[in-house]
Design a protein around this nucleic acid. Structure first.
Lengths: 199, 199
DNA sequence: TACTATACGGAGGATCCCTCCGTTTGTCAA
DNA sequence: TTGACAAACGGAGGGATCCTCCGTATAGTA
């Protein structure tokens, strides 16, 4: 995950934060990492003490940094968005098709936890709040170039927008499948649809 | 709510249950009523002890009847479906338009809690399970005649299906509005759309 | 090195989950 | 009506979680 230095060059400023003491910053990162794991495993109703335990941090440390469950949820969500956005750069070296698909596959894993976090956040935050707008903007800025590159190279049909693709993948990621391989199969088919050239 | 007699004439058999002792049946009804209230107020993560308290029943009584939180959730959901279905008969005496709109307004209140219950149930029950199929069938059987009657009377445009109307209303009911009056206003506009006669 | 703001951890009271078990009560047959 | 029993009830209580308070430790600075 993105380390928590306050002046990262490519920082999208999703998480504006004052400088923390070194130990505090480490604990912050450990808490977010643990929260992402536990929320993914047990849903948003997961025990905060379990998160603190897994982060090997006292429960009070968790509450000091995140006074509310919402605060922890929101920070985890923003870290996820930041991670999926900045991960687009990891695929720069690959061929256009492989780069796009590689990122989208990563997006599936991201979308699964993102959806449940977002659902919970929406109970307290407005859907078209500054936060959600910034997030969707960051994701578009990260992924749209991958799509355009693939389209310019002729390996993806030109009549699809980034929004189309992301929503298609999000929809597939949200399928309640009994076996996880099913998601894989469906995703494969759908991605093949992107290569199809309409006559 | 529908009282819990085991041989109600119009019973849709959504809730097959063996005959209960009189006191047990009363407590069952009190628990469902309390559960509906509390789930609506606090979400599906609400405290079961709070539900037992509000129903003025011992906590063990709740657990005996509903060994699992899922069981209580499911029973509450089914009661809601049964209530909204059988309530269609309440509007038989009204004019076609008033009958349809009256039922749909009741549906909005229903949909708000239904959605959150269904969301939680889907974590454990398959989307196209017998239960969900039966429920959507019951709602269609209840509401579709109201729509058809209004269409036959010429007060609702003929080019809309029951599914269209229900999903429109469900969508409006799911809006995360800050003020509840907003839902009312939007619903009014949308329902006026039903009267509009395309040329 | 010494000082202080910052951060840490855990005890502890309140609440919730769920089970066990002794007590009460509805139902039915005599 | 009455007596007997299956059915149902309620609450205590162990374990887990929530959240706060407060004494202790340490990073950063002069």
């Amino acid at each position: 995950m993105a380390t928590n230095v306050e002046a990262t060059p490519e920082a999208t400023a999703l998480l504006p934060r004052r400088p923390l003491r070194a130990d505090a910053r480490q604990n912050y990162d450990k808490l977010i990492a643990a929260a992402r794991e536990v929320f993914a495993e047990e849903g948003t109703a997961a025990s905060l003490e379990e998160i603190a335990r897994r982060a090997q941090v006292g429960i009070a440390t968790l509450y000091r940094r995140f006074p509310t469950r919402q605060d922890l949820l929101e920070a985890t969500y923003l870290e996820e968005v930041e991670a999926i956005s900045s991960s687009a750069a990891d695929f720069d070296g690959l061929a256009p098709w492989d780069a796009l698909v590689g990122w989208l596959r990563r997006y599936v894993a991201f979308a699964a936890t993102k959806r449940v976090l977002a659902e919970e956040l929406l109970a307290y935050v407005d859907r078209d709040s500054e936060m959600f707008k910034t997030c969707s903007g960051a994701i578009t800025a990260a992924g749209e170039p991958l799509l355009r590159r693939a389209q310019d190279a002729g390996v993806v049909r030109p009549d699809t927008s980034f929004s189309d693709v992301v929503r298609m993948v999000s929809g597939i990621a949200a399928i309640r499948a009994t076996e996880p391989e099913q998601i894989e199969r469906i995703l494969d088919v759908a991605l093949d649809g992107l290569r199809y050239q309409p006559s």
